[in-house]
């Protein structure tokens, strides 16, 4: 049996304190745990912990528990929770912050397509300035779960025959200007 207890030494209170000072996370301490965020979220029903629990865990310093959760990656950034929150907590920004920390600390769920997509996307955009939908999805699938590609064949064909699928690798002209943008994955903000 796995013991389900949290010793207080496991709580990273300093991290929790710092967290509330990041942009968009300032109102975190106002949370009254009402669950409006989870109730509003269209994806909460797929999450391993609810958005409300994410906030509670952040506040209590249970860093690893939140960073490893699937919840933060399921957030589709629709901002419904942020608009509905009675304490005006920008929950979407909290989720973004957690995603970034998970990537920086390399603790996100492996072979889970969402963080893979995010990283592929950033690499492509930072190098070429634009995202080429077809290639991005292709690379994401290869890295996470190539079987996805099979299920996408039908959609791909539909897009192709309606002239909506471009295989071109897009690129901006003055790509040199992008060199001053730090490589996203390495940067700690």
């Amino acid at each position: 049996m796995e013991r389900q207890i949290r010793y207080q030494r496991e709580a990273d209170l300093e991290w929790a304190h710092r967290f509330t000072q990041h942009p968009g996370c300032e109102r975190l301490l106002s949370c009254i745990q009402c669950g409006t965020c989870s109730g509003t979220c269209p994806l909460s029903i797929y999450m391993d912990i609810t958005p409300r629990q994410v906030i509670a865990m952040v506040r209590e310093g249970f860093r690893d528990d939140v960073l490893k959760s699937k919840t933060i990656w399921l957030c589709a950034s629709c901002y419904a929770c942020s608009v509905e929150c009675p304490q005006k907590i920008n929950i979407t920004d909290v989720m973004y912050r957690l995603k970034r920390e998970a990537i920086q600390n390399n603790v996100f769920p492996k072979r889970f397509p969402i963080p893979v997509l995010a990283q592929e996307f950033c690499e492509m955009v930072r190098r070429r300035g634009r995202n080429s939908e077809f290639w991005m999805v292709f690379r994401m699938a290869l890295r996470s779960n190539p079987a996805i590609l099979l299920s996408m064949m039908r959609t791909g064909w539909d897009l192709w025959r309606t002239g909506r699928l471009s295989m071109r690798m897009e690129r901006i002209q003055r790509v040199n200007e992008l060199q001053y943008i730090p490589a996203a994955t390495k940067e700690v903000d």
């Binding site: 745990q33 009402c34 989870s38 909460s44």
Partner: peptide, 8 residues
Amino acid sequence: EDTNTGFV
């Protein structure tokens, strides 16, 4: 969200 059970 029934915050007591954690279920939506």
